[in-house]
Design a protein around this nucleic acid. Sequence first.
DNA 1: CGTTGTGAAATGATTCACAGCT
DNA 2: AGCTGTGAATCATTTCACAACG
Lengths: 244, 244
Amino acid sequence: MSPRSRIPRPTAARISVYLRELEVRLERGDRTVRSREIGESLGLTDAQVRKDLRVLGLTGLPGVGYVIEEMLVRLRGLAGTDHGWRVALVGAGNIGKALMSYTRFEDEGFRIAAVFDSDPEKAGLHIGGLEVQPMSALPKAIEEGGIKLGIVATPLAFAQEAADALVAAGIEGILNFAPRRLELPASIATTEVDLSMSLVNLALQIRLAHGVPIIPTRDGVAAETLNGVHTRTDPDHLASVRSA
Amino acid sequence: MSPRSRIPRPTAARISVYLRELEVRLERGDRTVRSREIGESLGLTDAQVRKDLRVLGLTGLPGVGYVIEEMLVRLRGLAGTDHGWRVALVGAGNIGKALMSYTRFEDEGFRIAAVFDSDPEKAGLHIGGLEVQPMSALPKAIEEGGIKLGIVATPLAFAQEAADALVAAGIEGILNFAPRRLELPASIATTEVDLSMSLVNLALQIRLAHGVPIIPTRDGVAAETLNGVHTRTDPDHLASVRSA
DNA sequence: CGTTGTGAAATGATTCACAGCT
DNA sequence: AGCTGTGAATCATTTCACAACG
């Protein structure tokens, strides 16, 4: 109960990256891996990798490295993807449909267990083995289905309403594809995937790397340039923004 | 030319977040905004917001705040979304199709100008006003179309090949939806959107917030708990991982 | 006035470098 | 002989606190 150890935020943000890297290496037939190898693949120093793994409760064998299978068990245990998460999807539009046929969710320990849409036209539709249900069916389905995660893939205007319905039904976390921040109780976890903003970030990387001129508006002195963010192979979420 | 000022990485990662926040406020009819207001919406301190804005070349009016329109011009100028980016999409599967009908790209200054798929079945298909072209048409279309950004939305097995084709054609940045790191020259910018990993991150937030027991394998002392990452309203990409 | 802009202090994360283990 | 685990040093970012400003 007493929190003795904490996971630094940057470390937490890297867990999913380690997970995917280790899955690739195991698939490839490797049984162990050195911190330097992981670091090279991911653009981190070996010391940083070791520090991360240590704080995640993973320990290696001097002279050898880390046992991949052991790491996977640990990391999947941390994420709970070993015991399987059941997920509710709200929104059966373009993005929703793409998610329904995204087979990789299953591989990583997630199952879309129910799909909802407020459009009566869509209710009843069968897509990818799932029947689209009306929003009225949501509370019961979530409670009885043991569903803990929700995905909001609705149009912008309906996103908050969808989120509210999920929260009211007792969901614990929301993956939000709508291009807005959702108003949520602090106890609900969220991750955002804003497709436009991903492109904006990509464009920014390019502009900043090339050196965009800054004109410090204050005193007349002008035309500095700034280098920034080369960030090859960058991933993830869990950013910058602190808790309330 | 001489880089005098640099943008701290965390600041760079927040630019797109500011951009979206300001768009919402302008739409709502606000003309100015205080650093504290932005901070409250985004979960940052007012001082941090002011520091960020300053390094981005934005300056406010003491006693009043910042002029939203001015900020938008500046930030869009930084991202280059004012002059419009042309984008090539590779992969006309489920995700690709969803992206083709994602109208928001246009609003934010991006236009999908060409779509390619290696599957001859798909070539010739018209989706959302665009004709799916064979991969052989890619180099010419990218060069002649002034296309600088590429999106990889292919199956896993074809992702690297798609990326190679884009790079060979002279693309500057890639938005990657395939669940693997792409092998790319250091000069190419990338942003990853890995849908499964987004869910993993969400699940991790929940588990870590609840306090997951860590058993420090080294000495027998067991069962610590760790609090971590509450991260409400978290966005973006541009992470943790450093450049090579 | 209330809010910006910013040095100085505090916090947090990464890198270094090497002792210790297998 | 090679690689882990980790204190100590460095580097980066955030917070504090307050003078300057419209």
